[in-house]
Design a protein around this nucleic acid. Structure first.
Lengths: 218, 218
DNA sequence: GTTTGTGAAGGCTTTCACAGCC
DNA sequence: GGCTGTGAAAGCCTTCACAAAC
């Protein structure tokens, strides 16, 4: 077994591989909780409905983590995936849009827990500024985005505004120095190539389910 | 122009095509708001950062909606996409898990608006049962899932419980007759093939952004 | 002239299958 | 015996490019 390759050309690695690493992390956490110490790609695949060759290939991009004839050490594997995903240090988030979704996310365990920390919830609506979110943060003025990003060293912006405001908020986040943006507004955003924007349109998933219901025989 | 083909073999159509149809619907809605009456695939592509051949191909699976030399009638196109996605009738949702995310989603406009309607928010925690959600629904006992699904004719189940409870809730949703499930718990669910389960792990997206931040040069 | 709908080409991802190693 | 890491094959998806239609 060799250590995690730090100098892989990450530009050539598919986003699909990255999102699967994230999934593997959940699986490995479950195994750790269950006290499993060693796991083969086949066991992982069977247990979590994955493909064993794909697991091996995804991991092999970043180093040789396994032992032939044995499998992977679960604890070690977790640590490697954590390092690959950059989860070995805290990542701070700023949420813009203190509506239902925004205030729910700021104390959603996936968002404020583990390596992620919500350090600000902003809105441009004066009637919302000063409100307490369920997590105890106060809603602040969206105009203060640049200073909040700088002072609190936020790296990730989360957009939970209505569609009409999203592009403006995105532009301001880019100007404020945020390099990674998670967008929940149902609109396609434009941003410089140096900034990564991921959009999650929750309605798309519902509409996929609707398509399935409309066309499934039965 | 020919009408929407009702008898396409939907089993052969990629999920990617379906999720793009959903995106096209957002784009077409923006065009309608802007008063645009006709649009070509190239105009759509340029405006929303898409590929024109892909738009044409995605649409062509379901019929011949365009006029050569002209393009697509925006209003008509919207109607076709709505029919394809099965959005021409109401789809009722039941949410299980009245935590932060669950109660936020039940009055999130994407979830209770348009063709989707949340008809129940359930939890198994007695201390939550009876609580009012922001949308005015009362949290009901998760044990009543089967009767609520049947009486209110719910079709889609939404899981917003902690990971540990998600598989049990999923099994009960299947038993209650739900054929489409949207899962927000960070766990891989197992369900019969006749049921469509879509999982949305919000943390996966954050971790993808983290990977980008960790490896982007800068 | 313009644009659609589509076969063919190209590119990307997954899966297979096995050499190499334990 | 077992399992990983990986080239090769298969499958899938996107893009090109053009005939057919307006």
């Amino acid at each position: 077994m060799v250590a995690y390759k730090r100098h892989v050309d990450t530009a050539n690695i598919s986003e699909l591989t990255i999102s699967r690493l994230s999934i593997y992390l959940r699986c490995v956490d479950q195994l750790l909780e269950a006290g499993v110490e060693t796991v083969s790609s086949q066991q992982l695949a069977k247990r979590f409905n994955l493909n064993s060759a794909q697991i091996r290939k995804d991991l092999a991009y970043f180093g040789e983590f396994g032992v032939r004839g044995v499998g992977y050490n679960v604890r070690q594997l977790r640590q490697y995936v954590v390092e690959i995903l950059g989860l070995d240090r805290e990542r701070r988030l700023v949420i813009v849009g203190a509506g239902n979704l925004g205030s729910a996310l700021c104390h959603y365990s996936g968002f404020s827990g583990g390596n992620f920390l919500v350090v600000g919830v902003l809105d441009s609506d004066p009637s919302r500024i000063g409100d307490a979110t369920p997590a105890g943060l106060l809603v602040e003025d969206a105009a203060r985005l640049p200073e909040i990003v700088a002072q609190r060293q936020a790296e990730i912006g989360v957009i939970t505004t209505p569609a009409a405001a999203a592009q403006t908020v995105c532009d301001r986040m880019v100007d404020a120095g945020l390099r990674a943006i998670l967008n929940f507004a149902p609109i396609r955003l434009r941003a410089p190539e140096s900034v990564l924007v991921k959009s999650v349109d929750l309605k798309v998933h519902l509409e996929e389910l609707s398509f399935f219901l409309a066309h499934a025989e039965g």
